[in-house]
């Protein structure tokens, strides 16, 4: 893997991101609606409306004026000011939502990848066994369930019912001053949404891993391994799993790339102050600068994780390396 290759890959990534961002810029504006027509305000006068449009630069033609201005400011790192959260820079609004999303969805992905791959591997390896019947059944159910359906019963049972956890949100306002108390507070708030996101994701990973393992199990080298008199566990760990993992790498990378986008429904259900909730708010408000900021971040993340997937794939599969 030489430097030229790396540079070429990075350049490709940059071009991809630029294309996505420009496409989204146009798409957002092609949506029916406009930020100045969001709230029904009986006091609005035509003059004020015009002034408002001028304030967001919506009075100028979309192409080239608005687009050129947008590209110019984006390149210089200025993502503009939010329309919904008036007066707040987009970087600030987005920045505040990134942490909570990575904490919730990133952690959920991590747990789900480990548990889901293990569960899927066991299910596929002993197809029709107890693990498969229970695990795969539950996986299918949770995979097909919207987060609202997973989340609300969790809230009703474990939060308002048993009172073990807070119903929603990420922190208790003014609850604790010391860092340990705060960590515990966030951890307490994290349990239910994390459970919901993990359940949903485990399903996806486990179902895919299961079929990958089933496919791998039919390979000749598994017969070789059996002929070698290796234990089932060793064959699974050393021969089936590393090979079945290969098709999963791309899927995992794409999923991780989208971590940054948050889990929209999940965050809304649990009032989690992440990028998912923010995206909904920005979309409803036709907050173009905020939408652009969020999707720029998501595009960068997705493209970078795809790039990473190429490298990880190379590390895991010697055939790709040479």
């Amino acid at each position: 893997m030489n430097v030229a290759y790396l540079v070429r890959k990075l350049a490709q990534a940059l071009v991809t991101i630029a294309a996505i961002v420009i496409l989204l810029f146009v798409l957002f504006r092609a949506m029916p609606g406009s930020p100045d027509r969001v709230s029904k305000n009986p006091n609005m006068t035509p003059a004020m409306q015009a002034a408002e449009r001028a304030r967001w630069g919506l009075d100028k033609p979309l192409v080239p004026d608005q687009l050129v201005a947008f590209i110019g400011s984006t390149v210089t790192g200025d993502l503009g000011t939010s329309i919904k959260f008036r007066g707040q820079p987009v970087t600030e609004v987005v920045g505040a939502a990134v942490g909570p999303t990575i904490l919730l969805v990133g952690l959920g992905e991590a747990i789900a990848i480990i548990v889901g791959l293990a569960l899927g591997a066991l299910s596929g390896w002993r197809r029709g066994g107890l693990v498969d019947r229970l695990g795969n059944g539950a996986s299918l159910v949770f995979y097909s369930m919207p987060y609202f359906v997973i989340g609300m019963p969790l809230i009703m049972v474990f939060a308002s019912g048993l009172g073990w956890f807070p119903t929603s949100g990420m922190t208790t306002p003014g609850a604790s001053a010391d860092p340990v108390g705060q960590v515990l507070d966030v951890a307490g708030h994290l349990v239910l949404p994390l459970t919901a996101v993990t359940l949903g994701l485990i399903g996806a990973y486990s179902i895919l891993m299961r079929s990958a393992i089933i496919e791998t199990r039919a390979e000749d080298y598994i017969t070789t391994a059996r002929a070698k008199g290796l234990t089932d566990a060793r064959i699974l760990r050393h021969h089936a799993f590393p090979n079945a993992l290969l098709p999963m790498v791309t899927f995992i990378a794409i999923n991780l790339g989208y971590v940054i986008a948050g889990a929209i429904t999940l965050e809304v259900v649990f009032s989690w102050p992440g990028l998912g909730t923010l995206t909904v708010a920005a979309l409803n408000a036709r907050d173009y600068p905020l939408l652009q900021g969020i999707f720029l971040l998501v595009s960068v993340s997705v493209v970078m994780f795809n790039l990473l997937a190429d490298f990880v794939y190379g590390a895991l599969d010697p055939r790709v390396r040479s």
Partner: peptide, 8 residues
């Protein structure tokens, strides 16, 4: 439709 689309 959503309120922005309707408003427009």
């Amino acid at each position: 439709m959503d309120s922005s689309a309707l408003g427009t």
